[in-house]
Design a binder for these strands. Structure first.
Lengths: 196, 196
DNA sequence: TGCAAAGCGGAACGGTGTTCCGTATTGTTT
DNA sequence: AAACAATACGGAACACCGTTCCGCTTTGCA
């Protein structure tokens, strides 16, 4: 049993049915509110939408990061699993890296405020940062290593830095039509290429 | 008289001497506190450090953005003026652009929280964003155009996007030793280069 | 049905930005 | 010097937010 299984088990295994129901209601409400108002929406709004009290949301999700993680776990997992698949299916490792980065960027820019939240220095958000790193850093490292080995990109860049850079470039990408995060990330990845 | 002169004049021309003294005290206090606690430090702290009441800070600087701008105006102006100078002194436009970007990045990463503040969606921070754009966008555009004309970089990238990208890459650059914003920006600028 | 355990709700607290107005300071006029 | 109007000041008060805490309710079991 890994960390991921243990966390999801904590929900499925909840003893009382009202607790399970409320937790699901909170997840649904959070998902809706995150789309409408971003991941920094007031806790009270989420509790109200779910029809529960404020205490309940804190009992199920002691930190906002845990709620965000619970809401987006499936998508993050899908992104993590896409890495090896792309590597196997793409003509070159660099192509796989590029496609995977696209996936990651798409995920970030469509989740209002998520990229910013991950860089927030408020207490509790290190957890969010850590979760993304746990799940995606190994994948990114694998892709980066493959592309380095194939000689397509410069060696020496830590996957961590690349992911942070990409995350940063996605901040505020919604809400500003003049800014195209995808393009900026593409430029960054282009800068990674070995000058043939 | 341009906008910049008018704004500075609003300080020098303040009629009552206590008002002038307090405004200067606030600027000094803000500069100190910004260094110690970042540009998002509580308004009360700044007022306390300056030895004035809360009302006074709001009278002189109705929005936080105006206070930040007042504190950093000189440095932003210096950065703006460095653009043409670099263009004249550098061997190639691309070298000038690279040096200017370095200047900009240095400024951002040494001002705790400034890059993040510029991307904050709270009301009042559009002013900050707008000020930086007013002062620096023309300079960046000039450098970018020169480098495009000389054939060193791909055409078609708006200076606005480049500046936003750079600003984003600088977010949280302090407080994370594993992340090197300068390197990421260098990568971005490298991605801009015309493939020979 | 009774009862202990588990869970719930929301009042209450601390911290923050912001407004507002009675009071104090300043500069001018007499 | 004294009176006065204009200007500026201070901080109480309000609104909003995250978070904690505890009396009350619901649940599941005996």
């Amino acid at each position: 049993m890994n960390d991921s299984d243990r966390r999801t088990a904590s929900m499925a295994g909840s003893k009382r049915k009202d607790a399970r129901r409320n937790q699901q209601a909170l997840l649904d409400a959070a998902a809706t509110i995150f789309v409408a108002s971003g991941v920094e929406a007031p806790v009270r709004d989420i509790a109200a939408k779910a029809g529960v009290g404020i205490g309940t949301i804190y009992r199920h999700f002691p930190t906002r990061a845990e709620l965000i993680i619970a809401v987006y776990r499936h998508q993050v997992d899908a992104c993590a699993e896409a890495g090896p698949a792309l590597l196997a299916a793409s003509p070159t490792p660099h192509a796989a890296l590029a496609q995977w980065v696209d996936l990651f960027v798409d995920f970030l820019v469509t989740k209002h405020g998520l990229a910013a939240a991950m860089r927030s220095d408020s207490a509790g958000f290190e957890t969010l940062h850590a979760y993304f790193l746990d799940r995606l850093l190994p994948v990114c490292t694998q892709l980066l290593d493959a592309a380095t080995t194939s000689g397509e990109i410069h060696p020496g860049l830590e996957a961590y830095q690349l992911m942070r850079g990409i995350g940063n470039l996605c901040i505020g990408a919604d809400a500003d039509p003049r800014y195209d995060a995808r393009r900026m990330v593409a430029l960054l990845v282009a800068g990674l290429r070995q000058p043939h």
